[in-house]
């Protein structure tokens, strides 16, 4: 099955790329954009038919590699 997950910066962690994107959007007349936070999206094909097992594996992948928990949170979709 295919597991989809996102990794985002924790609240309060500086996101200079998000800030630059926000300023660009403001410059493009999207005046009402007040904040942009950038993250990463993963689609992982796991040869596993049990949804629960695949999800718990994805959780381990996030903790061990895909996210750095010092600054990032992850969410399995």
């Amino acid at each position: 099955m295919r597991v989809k997950l996102i990794v985002t910066l924790k609240n309060g962690v500086l996101d200079p790329q998000g800030k630059a994107i926000q300023q660009t959007l403001n410059g493009m007349a999207f005046d009402n954009v007040s904040e942009v936070r950038q993250g990463k999206y993963f689609e992982i094909e796991v040869n596993e038919s049990d949804k629960g097992i695949a999800k718990s594996q994805a959780e381990e992948m996030c903790k061990k590699l895909l996210a750095n928990l010092v600054i990032e949170d992850y969410k399995i979709l």
Binding site: V13, L14, P16, Q17, A20, N68, V70, I71
Partner: peptide
């Protein structure tokens, strides 16, 4: 070294990109 956990913290992108 920070990614292995041998040292604490992380090196983020420079503040002014």
């Amino acid at each position: 070294l920070t990614e292995t956990g041998l040292l604490p913290g992380i090196l983020q992108q420079n503040k002014y990109l």
